[in-house]
Nucleic acid binder design. Sequence first.
DNA 1: TGCATTAATAAACTGCACTTATCAATGCAA
DNA 2: TTGCATTGATAAGTGCAGTTTATTAATGCA
Lengths: 324, 324
Amino acid sequence: MDVNLRQIRAFLAVVGLGGFTRAAAALNISQPALTIRIRQLEDQIGLRLFDRNTRSVQLTRVGQELLPVFQRLMKDFDSAMADIREFSEEPRGTIRVAVLPSFAAGPLPALIADFRARNPRVSFVLKDAVGKRVLAMVRNEEVDFGIGVGGVDEPDLDTIDVFEDRLVLVYPRGHAAGELPLASVPVISQFPLVLMDKDTSVRRLVDEAFAGAGSIATPACEATYMSTAVSMVRAGLGLAILPASAIEIRGFADIATRPIDDAGFVRRIVIIKRRGSSLLPAVEEFTKVLLAAANSCAATPGPCLDVEVQDGGAEALAVGVQGQ
Amino acid sequence: MDVNLRQIRAFLAVVGLGGFTRAAAALNISQPALTIRIRQLEDQIGLRLFDRNTRSVQLTRVGQELLPVFQRLMKDFDSAMADIREFSEEPRGTIRVAVLPSFAAGPLPALIADFRARNPRVSFVLKDAVGKRVLAMVRNEEVDFGIGVGGVDEPDLDTIDVFEDRLVLVYPRGHAAGELPLASVPVISQFPLVLMDKDTSVRRLVDEAFAGAGSIATPACEATYMSTAVSMVRAGLGLAILPASAIEIRGFADIATRPIDDAGFVRRIVIIKRRGSSLLPAVEEFTKVLLAAANSCAATPGPCLDVEVQDGGAEALAVGVQGQ
DNA sequence: TGCATTAATAAACTGCACTTATCAATGCAA
DNA sequence: TTGCATTGATAAGTGCAGTTTATTAATGCA
C-alpha cells in the first residue's frame, strides 16, 4: 500500500469540487489522469471511495468515513511544509558564535541588536574567547562560526576577511605623543608603554610589529584587560597600543588616539567557519550583515566599525541569549 | 515545493542508517537514485540537509531542526494509513438494515450475535418494517440494505435471493389437518382460517396463492401480529398460514406445522441494495454471512434458517444498536 | 427522442525515476 | 607516502508510470 500525496490531493479535490472534470482542471491534469489516480488510490486501500456514473459522483460510506482522515493528513502535511518553508524564508534558530573579547564588547552587540530587530525569531549565544579558543570552538562545533584574527591556515577551516582592525596609540589628551609629526615604532618606543599581557593577540601583534621595525616592545606596565590599560594611560603611566575597535578606549574625554605609522599594526578580523559545513540560513544572513557593516564603514573615514552602543544593545543581547 | 513522501522516507532512511549506500539498500533502490532523491528534497525546500562527502554523512543544523518535523509527519501518515487499512481488513462501522418483522424476530438476532462475536467493531441498527417501508428505507439511504420479500423490480435497486420462506399450515396438535393426505388449497379452505391482516405481506401472499389455485381466502379470524394468530390457533379458532421461519410458531408443544402442497405458498426472502452504491466492507461481509447461513440450512432438511435463538441473541442486538 | 454533459476506456506519447557503469574523493593500512 | 577499499557524485541508457488526445457509453434534461 503505497498511497501517494497526489492521490490524496486528487481525492480531496474530487470531494471538494463534486466531479472529476472540475477536479482535474483544478489539479491541472486531464480528466482521464484523475480517473486513474482515484482508481489507484481505491485499489491500493482496497476500498471504493466514490460511487460514480456519468451523471453523479458521490462519496461511499467508506469515503465519508475516510474523508476526515485524509483531510487531517493533508492539513498536517501542508502546515509542516509551511513550517519548513519558513526556515529558508525567515531566518530563525539560534546562532552560536565565538568572538574575540574586544569585538564582543565593541561593535558586535549593536549589530546583533539590529539583526534581532529585523529577525525576531533568531537568538544568539555569544562566547567571548581568545583567538585560539575561537578556533577550537569552531572546530568542535561548539559554535556555528567564529570571529577572530586572521592568519589562520587550517585545512578544515575557511576564513573570510571582515575588516582591518588598526592598533592605535592611546595617550592622555595633551600628551606630547599627540603633537608628534610621526608615530612610528622608533618614536613610540621613546615613551613608557602600557602593553597587553603576553597571552593576548594584541600583544602578539605589537611584539611582531616592533620586531618587524627592528625593535623590541618593552612595557613600562602590563595589563590583562584593556580597561586596565586605559586606566593606566589615564593615570599617566604611559602610552598604550590597543585595537581601534576596542570599546574600552571610548567615552573618556581625557584620552586620545592616533594611528601608528607602521603597516605592522594591523590585524585582520575574519569570520571563521568549518569548511564544507552548512549553516543555518540565519547564520549565513548574519555573516552577510557583518560583512556589509564592515564594508559600509570601510568606505567612511575614521576607525572601522566604530559603532556607538545604543541603549538596548546589551539588553537585546541578554534577551537573545539562550541557556545551554 | 512539491515534496513527496518518498523523499521524506529517503531522508529518514539516510539519517537512520547514517549513509547513502546503506539507506539505498534499505529502500530497495540504487544508491544514485537515493542521491538524486535527497538532492531533490534539498532543492525543493531550498535547504541543505546533509553535509556529505565520500567518507561521512551528517545532518546539517537545518537537518537536525527538520528531522523531528519529518519524523512526526511520517508517523502521522503511517498511522493514518494503518487506520485506513483496518477499514478494509477488519470490518467496522455501523450496519443499518431494514428487515421484515418476521425475519427480524426470527433468525436475524442469532446471525447478528454471531457476526458481532467475530467482528466486535461492528454495530447494528435494525429497523423492522413491512415490505414497502423496507424498500423505501433502502432507497432513501436510511439503511445500508434491506431484507424483504422478492418480486421487487425497481431499476435503482438490486436484489439477491437469500432463501425461500415457505408458508406453512399451523394447526393444533391432534387436529384433523395433521392427518390429511394432502394439504392443498381446496382442502385447507374447508377449515376455518386465521389469516394475517390485509396489510401484511404474508396475507398478500396467501391471497395470491389462493387466487392462483382458483379460490379465495376467507378468514374466520384476522390478526395483525403473528403471535396473536398463533394464540388463536392454540385456542382452536382455526388454522393459520404463517412463514415457516417465524419465531412465533415455535416453542409450543400444542401446535404443529406442515407444508402446504401448493407452489404458491412460497415467498422469496431477498437482500435489497441500492444499485451502484458501495457499502461498508462490514456490510458486504454480513450479507455474505446471511447467504452462507441460508445456503447451509438449505442443504439440510426442515424449515430453512430454523435457527434457535440462544440466550444472548437479543442481548447482542441491544449492545450493537447505536442511537440515531 | 435528441442533446449536452460527464466518467470510463483506448492508444500513443512523454518524461521522470531508475539502473548500470564509472569517477573522484577520502580514510586506512602497510 | 603509496595502494586499496569504501562511498557519494556523475553520466548514459532504459523502462515504465503517468499523461494527453480521441473516443465511447451512460445519464439527465428539454
